[in-house]
Simulated assay, not measured.
Amino acid sequence: MSAIDHYLDAVIRQGEAEARHDGSAAIEAHHLLLGLAAQQDSAPGAVLAAAGLDRAAIRAALDREFEHSLSTVGVSPAAFALPSPTPDPDRRIGLGASARLALERGFFHAPRKRDLRPAHLLLGILEAELGTVPRALTLAGVNREELAERAKEAASTADW
């Protein structure tokens, strides 16, 4: 396997762990974003950290997005004792639609597989116009366009 294959495998495995922790049936783009943040020694990890988006900050933004989404339909999570998710360690968790689309968008930016860099994956996640990640980052006050520009720069200048 190439270096990018190993990197993608590590990020997807981390995304799977995040999805499992959430009790999710699929790995979605926000799980991959958390996985990228966990890879602190990579270009995407550095781009996210420079924007103040470590794993804890991203998790907090995702929690705010969840609460905000519920509040738009008149539900307050504080009013209920929601149970914690119960992870099923035996269930196979595959890629969800938002994760597949993020990967496709990221791959689109590299003319050939050998040109694919970790920052391309971050770029693919940030380019989503709709969904959990754009809502969470907006609620966190993150300028996605600026962050995407940093990811583009990292993809063009950084080996890893």
Score class of each variant (00 low, 15 high):
Met1Tyr: 04
Met1Gly: 11
Ser2Val: 07
Ala3Arg: 05
Ile4Gln: 06
Asp5Leu: 03
Asp5Lys: 00
Asp9Lys: 09
Ala10Arg: 12
Gln14Val: 12
Gln14Tyr: 08
Gly15Ser: 08
Gly15Trp: 01
Gly15Cys: 08
Glu16Gln: 09
Glu16Pro: 01
Ala17Arg: 07
Ala17Asp: 15
Arg20Ile: 02
Asp22Asn: 08
Ser24Ile: 00
Ala25Tyr: 06
Ala25Pro: 01
Ala26Arg: 02
Leu33Val: 12
Leu33Ile: 10
Leu34Cys: 07
Gly35Leu: 00
Leu36Trp: 05
Ala37Glu: 11
Ala37Gly: 15
Ala37Thr: 11
Ala38Val: 08
Gln39Phe: 04
Gln40Cys: 06
Ser42Gln: 08
Ala43Pro: 00
Pro44Asn: 13
Val47Asp: 14
Ala50His: 10
Asp54Thr: 08
Ala57Leu: 03
Ile58Ala: 05
Arg59Ser: 15
Arg59Phe: 04
Asp63Ile: 05
Glu65Tyr: 01
Phe66Arg: 14
His68Phe: 13
His68Arg: 06
Leu70Cys: 07
Leu70Arg: 09
Leu70Asn: 09
Thr72Arg: 05
Gly74Met: 07
Gly74Trp: 05
Ser76Lys: 09
Ser76Cys: 05
Ser76Phe: 03
Pro77Asp: 14
Ala78Ile: 03
Phe80Ala: 13
Phe80Trp: 09
Ala81Trp: 03
Leu82Val: 14
Pro85Asn: 13
Pro87Asn: 14
Pro87Arg: 08
Pro87Val: 12
Asp88Glu: 10
Pro89Asp: 15
Asp90Asn: 13
Ile93Ser: 05
Leu95Thr: 02
Leu95Ile: 04
Leu95Phe: 00
Gly96Ile: 03
Ser98Leu: 02
Arg100Trp: 00
Ala102Tyr: 02
Leu103Ala: 05
Arg105Glu: 13
His109Asn: 11
His109Trp: 11
Ala110Met: 15
Arg112His: 12
Arg112Ile: 05
Lys113Asn: 09
Asp115Lys: 11
Leu116Asn: 07
Leu116Ile: 12
Arg117Trp: 02
Arg117Tyr: 02
Pro118Ala: 10
Ala119Pro: 01
His120Gly: 08
His120Tyr: 04
Leu121Pro: 01
Leu126Cys: 10
Glu127Phe: 00
Gly131Pro: 06
Thr132Val: 12
Pro134Asp: 15
Pro134Ser: 13
Arg135Val: 11
Arg135Leu: 15
Leu137Ser: 08
Leu137Tyr: 07
Leu139Ile: 07
Ala140Asn: 11
Val142Gly: 03
Asn143Asp: 15
Arg144Glu: 12
Arg144Cys: 06
Glu145Pro: 00
Glu145Ile: 14
Ala148Pro: 02
Ala148Met: 09
Glu149Asn: 10
Arg150Gln: 15
Arg150Leu: 08
Ala151Thr: 09
Ala151His: 09
Lys152Ile: 11
Ser156His: 13
Thr157Tyr: 02
Ala158Arg: 07
